[in-house]
Write a protein that binds this DNA or RNA. Structure first.
Lengths: 166, 166
DNA sequence: GCTCCTCACGAAACAAACTTGCAACTCGCG
DNA sequence: CGCGAGTTGCAAGTTTGTTTCGTGAGGAGC
């Protein structure tokens, strides 16, 4: 796993570039350069620098789950019985290794984990619960929320309006 | 807004391509072609077709929130008082228009909305709650979960192992 | 059984984008 | 005031994406 490099300073050019790339990373560097008033090579060097520093974690295509036969999105709050480091790490590892688990967060509050799961059918989800939750003796309880509407989905990070044009 | 076109059929080539693009959409088409045993133009045509059909919703860079000064990720379960269509739509619109709200789902169960929020500081989050929740007379209650660890984050859709090599 | 039509593929030519080397510039510091 | 680190823009070279064209594999109809 590519370890994330030391912190780097980001100026308003970088933030403006990131804002564009978060929308569409297929934007030509020349166009980005025009938008932020920089030459294409300068844009390219900044992008590479941010990728190496881990500011840009990945470049990926966003697929509509419903269009590929996975129309069900589910939230699950998981509460565990014993919160030792070993058991928590084991749970993290298992959730991470499960492809249907799109997102997994270890949280404070009334639950310990929050999962976002995509599934093709209710039967698939039920089978998954049997494996992940009923099959795990450390899971005390879990609560399920079915998504009726994916109102807003994304991983866009708000960067303020530090964009610069001059 | 680009309306999503009629359904299209996806074969195992398409799924294999999607699997690659979900990992890294900067992969050259030639390399994708080698991986799935297709020529580069064929790959390119399939990608364009899936983009037009809405199977590929976006191509974007994933930014590490912590590296850009937004180290706090928060889950919020929101419960509303009145669930009329107008009020629900209004809530959806407001959440969608808020940049700090990374994700918003309208769900069944003990909550009505689940939000994923990124914030720079606790004070920022508190200000946001005042605006979004206390400032909205239709919000009955909301529960907050702070993420201690973003164990797994992504929007990758499991496509099974329909990938083909021959 | 034959033909026509449609569709997707691959090879090659073409256009566009990315990448690198180099000289000049700015800024901070001794 | 001069030096060094860092960044920029320009231009050339390379890789990649895109288009065009011809070919071959199914299906429908005669």
């Amino acid at each position: 796993m590519a370890k994330t490099n030391p912190e780097i300073a980001l100026d308003s050019f970088d933030l403006a570039i990131l804002t564009i790339l978060q929308n569409d990373n297929a934007t030509p560097q020349r166009m980005i350069g025009e938008a932020v008033n920089l030459s294409a090579p300068a844009v390219q060097r900044r992008i590479k620098r941010m990728e190496q520093a881990g500011v840009i974690q990945a470049n990926c295509a966003i697929v509509d789950p419903a269009k590929v036969g996975q129309p069900i999105t589910i939230f699950v709050e998981v509460e565990v019985i014993s919160e030792t480091a070993e058991l928590i790490d084991a749970a993290k590892a298992e959730f991470s290794a499960t492809p249907e688990v799109q997102q997994c967060y270890y949280v404070t509050g009334e639950a310990d984990f929050i999962l976002v799961i995509v599934a093709a059918t209710m039967a698939d989800y039920e089978a998954l619960t049997r494996r992940l939750f009923f099959g795990n003796s450390n899971v005390k309880k879990f609560r399920t929320f079915f998504a009726m509407d994916r109102v807003k989905v994304g991983l866009r990070v708000p960067l303020g309006d530090k964009a610069r044009a001059s």
